[in-house]
Amino acid sequence: MSLDFSFLTLKVINNIILTGLIFSIKLTLISMVLGIILGTLLAMMRLSKYKFLSSFALAYVTIIRSIPLVMVILWVFLLIPLFIGRSLGTEYSAIITFTLFEAAFYAEIMRAGIQSVKRDQANAGYALGMNYFQCMGYIVLPQAFRNMLPVLLTQTIVLFQDTSLVYAIGAFDLLKGFSIISKNFNRPVEAYILATIVYFIICFGLSYLVKRIQNRVRIVR
C-alpha cells in the first residue's frame, strides 16, 4: 500500500494538530504542578505521626493506584456535577481528574524523596527552634525535591502519555486531533503513523532531557 501525507497542510497543522497539542501540554503542565503540590501534601500526611492523616493518605494512594485512569476520568466526569450541581466541561474535568490521579503517583515519589533526607537534618532543624513546617519547607522538601527531580519528571512524561485517554470524555487533545484528521481525510493509516511519530519525538526528547538533568543532579551531589 502507498502512503499519502498530502493532507498535511499548514492549515491542518495549525487548526487541528496544534490545538490538540496545546491542550495536551496545558493539561500536563497544570496537572503536574497541582499534582506535585497535592502529592507532596499526601506524602507528608503519609509520614505524619497522626494515624488519621497517614491512613487517609495511604487509602487515597492505594485506591487511586489500583484503578484504571479511564475509570477515574469517567467517575470525575459523572460525579462532579452531582456534587457541585453543575458540569465543569471536559477541560476542567480532565484537569481535576489528572491532578487527583497523578497526585497519588507523585505522593509515592515524594515520600521516597522525604525519606532520602537524613533524619539528623530534620532533628538539627528542630534543635534550631524551627517548627514542623519550617523544617519541611526550608530543609527537607528542597532536598527531597531535588533528589527526586528526575523521577518526578519521568512520571510527568507518563502523565503526558496518559493525557491521550481523555478521549473517554471527548476532550480535544493531541490524539483526538489525529483521529479527526483520520476521519476528515479518510486517511487513518497515515494519521495514526503521524500520531506515533509525534508522541515518540516528544516523549523520547523529554526522557533524553531527564537523563541529562539526572546527570547534573548527580554531579552536584
Binding site: 469517567l74 466526569f77 459523572l78 456535577p81 450541581g85 453543575r86 458540569s87 466541561g89 470524555i169 471527548g170
Partner: peptide
C-alpha cells in the same frame, strides 16, 4: 453541554 453519559444525572440534580 451534556453527553449521553451525564444527561440524566444532570437533569435530576437540577444542573
Amino acid at each position: 453541554a451534556v453527553t449521553s453519559q451525564n444527561r440524566i444525572p444532570l437533569i435530576q440534580n437540577g444542573t
